[in-house]
């Protein structure tokens, strides 16, 4: 079954406590949503195979506890990660304000400088928004991150977030090719800009 998998990618989901990291992961891996998910303690781990532009990638996704002190347990997980999803809650400004701390964390512990980072604003289904989309976009632009807003509850944008991330990683062969040199990437022609892709409306590759 793994025969046609191009590569296994290690993805890390980080962000403040309660922003919906586990919900985002659960929506992606199991396509379910539980409004009352128990708080993640330590680290959790899930796997999912995803197909992007004809290339199959197996994602090993680490879901971490959000409380600051737990970061001390996870530095080793940054090592070797090819992608990081940094999540904030669009209805809680404090989770957006603290993004800088998380970027410091990334800078400190990531061993690669070409790692693909994606900023994700979660809970866009809620009405009491405190962080405007443009603010997220601006922050992502400033720090060369992909950006998407989504809702783990309604599923809006979730699949797209992971697809964009994987696509970007695959486009950066230095991130993964050393382990998989024998396999060729299928290159498919893509329109520049936003036309022709469902995700175009959400994601910005900056």
């Amino acid at each position: 079954m793994d025969e046609d998998v191009l590569t296994t990618l290690r993805i890390l989901i980080i962000g403040e406590s309660g922003v919906g990291k586990s919900s985002l992961l659960l929506r992606f891996t199991d396509d379910t949503f539980d409004p009352e998910l128990a708080a993640t303690i330590g680290v959790d781990f899930k796997v999912k195979t995803i197909s992007v532009d004809g290339n199959k990638a197996k994602l090993a996704i680490w879901d971490t506890a959000g409380q600051e002190r737990f970061r001390t347990l996870t530095p080793s997980y940054y090592r070797g990660a090819q992608g990081v999803i940094l999540v904030y809650d669009v209805t809680r400004r404090d989770t957006f304000v603290k993004l800088d701390n998380w970027l410091n964390e990334l800078e400190t512990y990531c061993t690669r400088n070409d790692i693909v980072n994606m900023l994700v604003g979660n809970k866009i289904d809620k009405e009491n928004r405190e962080v405007d989309r443009n603010e997220g976009l601006k922050f992502a632009g400033k720090h060369s991150m992909l950006f998407i807003e989504e809702s783990a509850k309604t599923c809006d944008g979730v699949q797209c977030a992971f697809e964009e991330l994987v696509e970007k990683i695959i486009q950066t062969p230095g991130l993964w090719k050393s382990e998989n040199q024998n396999k060729g990437v299928k290159l498919t022609h893509r329109e520049e800009g936003q036309g022709g892709r469902a995700c175009g409306g959400y994601c910005s590759v900056l």
Binding site: A38, I41, G42, V43, F45, W62, L73, T74, S76, Y77
Partner: peptide, 17 residues
């Protein structure tokens, strides 16, 4: 695989959950 990945929860929650 580090033990913190598989067992930190055991120790932090003292096996609760």
């Amino acid at each position: 695989v580090l033990w913190t990945l598989v067992a930190s929860r055991w120790f932090i929650c003292l096996f609760v959950d």
